[in-house]
Write a protein that binds this DNA or RNA. Sequence first.
DNA 1: GTGAAAGCGCTAACAG
DNA 2: CTGTTAGCGCTTTCAC
Lengths: 327, 327
Amino acid sequence: VPTVSQILNNKGHRYRDQTCKKVMKAVRELGYRPNSYARAVRLGKFNCIALVLSTEKYKSFLPGELLRGVHEGVAGADMHLTLTMLPDDKLTNQGFVPKILQQWMADGLLINYHVHVPAMMMELIRKNGIPSIWINTKFEHDCVYPDDFSASQKGTEKLLQLGHRNIAFADFGFPFGRIPEHYSGVDRFEGYAAAMRAAGLSPMEIRGQEYVPLSERLAAARAALSKPDRPTAVVTYSDTSALPVLHAATSLGIRVPQDLSILTFGEQLVDIGGVGITTMLIPWAAVGQSGSQMLLEKIANPAQVLKSRALEFEVAEGVTCSAKTES
Amino acid sequence: VPTVSQILNNKGHRYRDQTCKKVMKAVRELGYRPNSYARAVRLGKFNCIALVLSTEKYKSFLPGELLRGVHEGVAGADMHLTLTMLPDDKLTNQGFVPKILQQWMADGLLINYHVHVPAMMMELIRKNGIPSIWINTKFEHDCVYPDDFSASQKGTEKLLQLGHRNIAFADFGFPFGRIPEHYSGVDRFEGYAAAMRAAGLSPMEIRGQEYVPLSERLAAARAALSKPDRPTAVVTYSDTSALPVLHAATSLGIRVPQDLSILTFGEQLVDIGGVGITTMLIPWAAVGQSGSQMLLEKIANPAQVLKSRALEFEVAEGVTCSAKTES
DNA sequence: GTGAAAGCGCTAACAG
DNA sequence: CTGTTAGCGCTTTCAC
């Protein structure tokens, strides 16, 4: 028995070639597969990291690229990935402890919550002591997230360099005066605002008084673009704000990009009707990889506190940004 | 030690209340957590099902709802979910066996491949003998998928009932004469075609001679709608075909839905610019739940072969379908 | 080079 | 009611 173990784990240098071959043949014929759980028990670690999400539809977000990045990092270290969804509502109940924390089944947690995490959950995890990294949230430590602030700032600077002065920020998803739950809602605006102020200009927001439903965004965008001092460029929070702006412009006879430049954020360049909107690409794959990498470091040395990482965006050049033309 | 085991597993009826409390207190104070892997080894099963995807971007598709459905089914049976992505390219190499099959670490496989699976993979899995269910592919047995044929047929019938006779099917993603890799490309057309033929009409396809890139679809749709015998209703393969049709109509002065009805397929109702497109909703959550349910049955009784299940779509009513108006 | 023996953390069976 | 004993499948150590 131990001979087989040694050989299958590539520590078979010490055995005769003949023995190795005999073992391999038997393995094939019997269809033998080592039980990885028994191995884990013996070795004292699971070789498993758990990706934690919320069951709530809009609280956790798992784009394909993020998953791919995570899996790459995890598989690269010869570990496997477990995926678990926690019911947020139950989490607030005193006394409720999710299975993943109540049992011992992973070496570390990769927590992907984009809106604010129940305080109790953070407390549970802290008390539990299991190595954890947060993804797509903004904390001081042990956290990876896309650098929305910097991306927005740089994007706005580019528009400024193209000669635009009258640049607006549009986000129909969050009304005036309410603080967005996800940090990106804050940072994409603040990055834009910082660039504007640095250029001696004041930020200008296109929002609703309340959340604007998708079906009313076209009208809202038309209203904003019908004003006499309409912007010559718009930075939008996402495609669900960018597309209404684009369609509003088209329907008002405002040409894109000649009369109006549009810049947005998203996972990929959105191209509907032949107009690809220039997009700051959220670096999901990098977040996934960095996250798992950090977690592995933390598992190797659980005591250390890791500095959070903010990851750069790349730009997908569409056809919606150009230099300001003289009016 | 065994006392603790019994009590924690709710078989503690046989113990004194006092003992139970003492155990619980100690558990809390010491932060004791049972090792689920050791338990699994002892019990001879992993209590784990593995969700298998491809690493290839366009070969596996994991919408949030599907994941949620799978997780629900799995967690409901008190099992956990492991997620693994296989590199298709390596899979064709003779001799390559992925970790998930080479090791023993899950009770069953839920395989989510939407384009055709490498033959070698099917062979490997069959030889391996691990209980498996296929998701989002169309096989005779051990398989769950959305019933695209029936959905398309019923949708087309509804348009016929609304008085439309000149109904086209649009799919810019697949050109004439090429067989779509995913069955839905075939079935959505064939369901439409069956309904048309049953009404004594002949199917009419809007496609390109080659794959039509997103940026050229608007032009292609305009061309199709500019013909004298243009359709009064269009069934489209997906939103990436529906939106160009919608925009083409708008730009040509064809009113939707008065002059043109549009029906499409997708995960959710797409609403851009205030026009929600009537959409046949792919039942992802149900596929996930059914899939895990079937897999659990199969794990309980590995010998049986399960009949495949095709799941019904629901309709999200938008504003793009209405009765044919007299011209 | 090889295989017997010990032990990872757990649960089931059984004796006290 | 409780605790001792055995054994799940594996790896490591250590005689032979």
